[in-house]
Design a protein around this nucleic acid. Structure first.
Lengths: 205, 205
DNA sequence: CGCGCCACCGACCGATCGGTCATTTTATTG
DNA sequence: CAATAAAATGACCGATCGGTCGGTGGCGCG
């Protein structure tokens, strides 16, 4: 019983430190997030962090991982939904847009780690693409796209390219929503991006 | 005469330092590019850099600016070309793909500075989006898209969203080409991305 | 109530960075 | 060739960072 209570306190501490880390990363960027600033943001001393995390890399890695695992969980759920291809596709896009729309800090973090090619050489290994949860999601996404191809819904093309195109397209929409003073309803933008990816920008034939 | 010769030497020095800076940025990332490593990469002493650049920000800013101004020049030229909308559109995409395809280092730099939202707070002001040359290009790009709309080539939608969607789509293709062991010819991928943006992933109706 | 333990703290350390400047090396000129 | 100017150098400085550790204060247990 007691151990459970202490573990609860420990989990609360860990979570509050990770939350502070995410806020600092979103504010200062990944490479400029110092342990001192994270500690201050969490309202504790710097040394305390090292009671719960091995070092800076451990803290940043686990903070980002845990924060984005919630997104991956929702996306995986969306992929497992039933229904028409287009509806499932729209649900996928909607899930991502709404997640970041209600969590701007995490979108900053997501942008910072999305492209391993742009990271410091030493940080590339801790890319979230290497995480098992992301690999599972990505596998399912590829199979979903293959279903769309074999089902005659979309053209014959490399699923991995469609996946990346989808990912970047959604990022583009969220970037726009962040830049605009007043964005339209999320559902409007979701419909827009789904239509754009499915049918392009050309006038219907 | 003599001043011209000295200016030539000075320009050569500046260029070689900037080239070294770009290589180091591509290798280590923007925030981890140290003055010492850039100096070593250029084959000179650290102090020498300060004979030609005010400080680190000045060096990094001018290096990135000059390197990407070549891309902006080519893109602006592509926008000013004559011909059918679709051909001009394809030329625009082709220009960007081929530029980065023959200059991987610059693509790394481009990725690192493309999203001001993901940069350190202090570095956001030196975003290349703020540069006059980029603003001019972006204005012309928006007008090009508006022409496509008024000309009935593409649907009625916000030009700025189409622009961002285009930009992200091209980035997606180049990312794929970098990740793949052997990529198809650039022209193949250009045709693919143009068709995708224009008509989407759906089967033709 | 008082004692002991442990989470917590923050001053401290070594390493590293951007930036400076006295010194050395190179180039120019009479 | 020597004298002078100019350019290049790298040891050095202060600041900042990640990480450590001896001290301390508050909480629980006897």
């Amino acid at each position: 019983m007691k151990t459970t209570k202490e573990e609860l306190v420990e989990q609360f501490r860990i979570s509050s430190i990770q939350d502070a880390a995410i806020r600092v990363i979103a504010r200062k960027g990944l490479s400029a997030a110092s342990m001192q600033e994270i500690a201050t943001e969490a309202g504790i001393a710097k040394g305390t962090i090292y009671l719960y995390f091995e070092n800076q890399q451990d803290l940043l890695e686990r903070s980002v991982d845990d924060a984005l695992s919630e997104l991956l969980r929702k996306l995986t759920l969306a992929l497992e939904s039933a229904g028409e291809f287009r509806d499932r596709f729209a649900l996928l896009v909607r899930t991502k847009v709404e997640f970041f729309d209600s969590n701007h800090d995490l979108f900053r973090v997501y942008l910072a780690i999305k492209h391993p090619e742009a990271l410091d050489q030493d940080s590339r290994r801790c890319s979230y693409r290497e995480r098992p949860q992301h690999k599972i999601y990505h596998e399912k996404l590829l199979r979903f796209i293959e279903e769309g191809i074999t089902g005659g819904e979309i053209k014959q093309m490399k699923p991995s390219r469609v996946a990346l195109f989808l990912e970047e397209g959604v990022v583009a929409v969220i970037l726009q929503r962040l830049a605009e003073d007043s964005s339209p309803q999320a559902s409007e933008d979701v419909d827009w991006i789904v239509d754009l990816i499915l049918h392009g920008i050309s006038k219907p034939c």
